[in-house]
Amino acid sequence: MIKAGRAHNLLPRNQLSPLQKALNWLLLLLFFATMIIPMLNVLAVSFSPRLQSMQPGVILWPSQWTVNGYQTVWTRANLSRAFFNSSLVSLVGTAVQILLSSMAGYVLVQKNLPFRRALSLLILFTLMIPGDLTLISIYALNKQLGLLNSYQGLILNGLVSGFSILLMRNYFQSVPESLAESARIDKAGELRVFASIYLPLSLPGLASITFLEFVGKWNALMIPVTIISDPGLYTLPMVLRQLAFATDSTSGVDYIAPNAQMAAIVISVIPLIILYTFAQRFLIGGLTLGATKG
């Protein structure tokens, strides 16, 4: 600190020159505009009247505010049902996933466990056989198990991810083993050690994995389009996909105007944005651990 203070007295402040700063601000502005303008456009169109949304032009503010698009898509395109389906499948799936992968992660940090390395490798290997590459046989499997067109199918496929298990393991590795040892001396069972020592000490990790898994399940498209054909079981991404094609050509009988389509998009991202505001605090740590040296 003292050194830094002295340096300030002797030298100009350690930052970019005014011109470089201006260029940097310009660059950031460009990034920001590229990101935010389409989002504003979507938001504005979603609150615009049907006719205005079909006109060409730059719409960044509705000429007249209306929730018509939202009403149309919620009832006519059956978005309410898809919203319910997505919520159910994502919530149940995430809860089970977190329970199972944190237990598995706990097993992988047991130092003297026989075959621990083999178990880790096995889980690592599952990361290399992504579901999307075995799509055809996943369809066959679901047919054999009677999971086509069912909630169980939507929940079970992609329920557990090796990625979450390894992330959980990394969080658990930072829990001091002496705590677990002393609990075991007090005759606490493994489940007890896991639930009352490891889980509470890894809450930030748990929070960020929960969030990322929820997002993954909420956004899943490939497996659902493969195993679901009953419109009553469509998830939000499946309905959005239909809408993306519905606005494409004006020839369709069931034409959905852009205002309704954009309303559907806004509805489907609202839960993610709300959750993000809560998870933000933990998220950077979770993401960094996932993608850099843990």
């Binding site: 920001f32 989002m39 956004n219 499946m238 959005l240 996909r241 993306a244 494409d248 998009i265 993000y276």
Partner: peptide, 24 residues
């Protein structure tokens, strides 16, 4: 703002850009 689209599904991002880049 730059991070948010990472959370959105391709149905959202694709839907947005198919519309933003459409004829009108």
């Amino acid at each position: 703002v730059t991070f948010l689209p990472y959370l959105f599904s391709w149905t959202v991002v694709g839907g947005v850009w198919v519309y933003v880049l459409s004829h009108n």
